[in-house]
Write a protein that binds this DNA or RNA. Sequence first.
DNA 1: TATGAATGAGGCTTCATTCAT
DNA 2: GATGAATGAAGCCTCATTCAT
Lengths: 187, 187, 187, 187
Amino acid sequence: MSKRDQIMTAALGLFIENGFDKTPTSAISKAAGVATGTLFHHFKTKEELIDTIYEEIKFSLRDMLAPALAGQTELKAIFHDVWIMMLEWTLENPEKYRFLHQFGESALISANTRERTQEAFSDFCNLVENAIEAGTFRPLPVDVCMGLMSSHLYASSNYLLEHKELWQDAEFRKQLFGSYWHTLATA
Amino acid sequence: MSKRDQIMTAALGLFIENGFDKTPTSAISKAAGVATGTLFHHFKTKEELIDTIYEEIKFSLRDMLAPALAGQTELKAIFHDVWIMMLEWTLENPEKYRFLHQFGESALISANTRERTQEAFSDFCNLVENAIEAGTFRPLPVDVCMGLMSSHLYASSNYLLEHKELWQDAEFRKQLFGSYWHTLATA
Amino acid sequence: MSKRDQIMTAALGLFIENGFDKTPTSAISKAAGVATGTLFHHFKTKEELIDTIYEEIKFSLRDMLAPALAGQTELKAIFHDVWIMMLEWTLENPEKYRFLHQFGESALISANTRERTQEAFSDFCNLVENAIEAGTFRPLPVDVCMGLMSSHLYASSNYLLEHKELWQDAEFRKQLFGSYWHTLATA
Amino acid sequence: MSKRDQIMTAALGLFIENGFDKTPTSAISKAAGVATGTLFHHFKTKEELIDTIYEEIKFSLRDMLAPALAGQTELKAIFHDVWIMMLEWTLENPEKYRFLHQFGESALISANTRERTQEAFSDFCNLVENAIEAGTFRPLPVDVCMGLMSSHLYASSNYLLEHKELWQDAEFRKQLFGSYWHTLATA
DNA sequence: TATGAATGAGGCTTCATTCAT
DNA sequence: GATGAATGAAGCCTCATTCAT
């Protein structure tokens, strides 16, 4: 792993554990096993560091979901697949998930970066738009739907991370997806 | 308004705008129109200040909801009332809402305070528990249900704060409550 | 002496001895016998500190010269008086003199401050202007004359500070003033 | 131009614009179009770099003046020639001139280098010494005379660099040299 | 000779908190 | 209770310099 990656990994862990402002850059370099200056050789500022972490996670998420969005035709099947992938990704990358949860809406991520990464999810957004027009989803603004879906995922993820065994429980999964789907679906 | 209240009001505004760590106590005193030392007469530390603000907001929320929880008998009616009250409170107290949203889950609120304020919502929690047992709500753990409800409210609030006029739209409200209700309801 | 003055005095000494950039603020506070923070309580930045020192010296110089400029009528007498006062001030305030010499033209003094202090010497500038128009001084631009006079004073001061005893030598003083005067005078 | 020369040229420009301490070696390498390490192949330290620049300028000045000092016999003619050469050199090499002005007396130039370059002007110094003994110049210490002459040149140069067109004005030149000459001459 | 990633000491400044008035 | 000057620990970042390639 390159020193740059060591820094990003260490920072990710410390940020979610202590928060951005409570994590000195000195602690990051130390945890990464590099010198103070090295951090600033790779990232101009502490803000650029967190921005870069955010960007990388968002893009890796997008890349993971891409096949599911492209492959299927039946709407509910797509949503089910995406839903599964998201929650499994959370269970496998709890730190990255927590990072998005904690910093995704904070002012620490620059507007610029946020915009650039938002585009990455336009495919999914279009899907929702179509579902609304087709009458499959409730007649609500797309933004509301997107918000409701992601907040549902957040709540589910939070719970699952503390009860990982439940993910093996087929009935639990069925009920949880049912809740997810009926939050928006008309039938 | 007492100096103590001036400080709390100023702090609330600055905290949600800049974040806790990016808000110097000096800025709070200045915005409140008091001297640096005065803040520390009323609150031993900066943490005690944010804790106190949190507590006050939480309790005011509880007091507001109490009559609705006590009065009615029909479940869906209670949930509708509570849902309405919560969103109207958000629209009338956007700063307080944002404060809860930003700091409610952060490590800045002491475990102690969080516990004490949690109890305040045990009535509502019991209601949900009964709904599950009665089969009105999906057979999911109570904690999951509570999480899904509050995250639904968060998403709705966020959207409404940027589109206040929609609250007057009866159809929108109906659809949004429908979404809220069917997130958990079995029918 | 107030802590503020202690800081200014200590800074003056260190700045001329080591230069601005080679003088850590920590060294200033230490020499002044105050805490690090105290320096920044009185001066927002290190630059504001040097600016303030510059301003104070310039204004004290102006105040010292004011009577000489106001009192006399005969031109050469005024110039002689001012010349004497300047050199005696230098001998009595060698640190302040060196400060002006070293930082007067440096980029460390803000344009703003430089302007504000320049006005302080407009009286003397007018005197020179009149002398040129009257034919007492060579027909050169005022700015050139001012520059030549002050550079003459600088050279003289530098030498005198290393040979203080010569100031008591009447013949030396006569010759040096002669040089000063004939740099600009036509006769 | 060799990389070594590129570095020296870039450094000269940046030093006079921003000052020595405000010019990172990284900025120099960048402006010179070379890598960080390259600078330190040619100059052991940043100080050695500025020292070398100083030395080169001083020696080029000496070489330029040498013929004028050697050729003539009449004193005033020599001084006039030297005076002309100095100011024309300034007009043609404003950056080098500013460099000498800014760093010539600063502590950045090592005592060693300063001594070595001083010797270069001993010829001129002797000339002044003779003029004093001959009664052509005022009976002042040689050092004072040297100081007055060079400060006169500084003041003149500073002005000329901002009013280059005046150098074509014969009357202006006559008056300015008159001032220069009568600063020291007895008649 | 040339490169540029890596180093780590050190500088400026911020800020929660104290305390004498 | 109220004030605000004073404190000093700690944070972010800069930068001259080294060294493996």
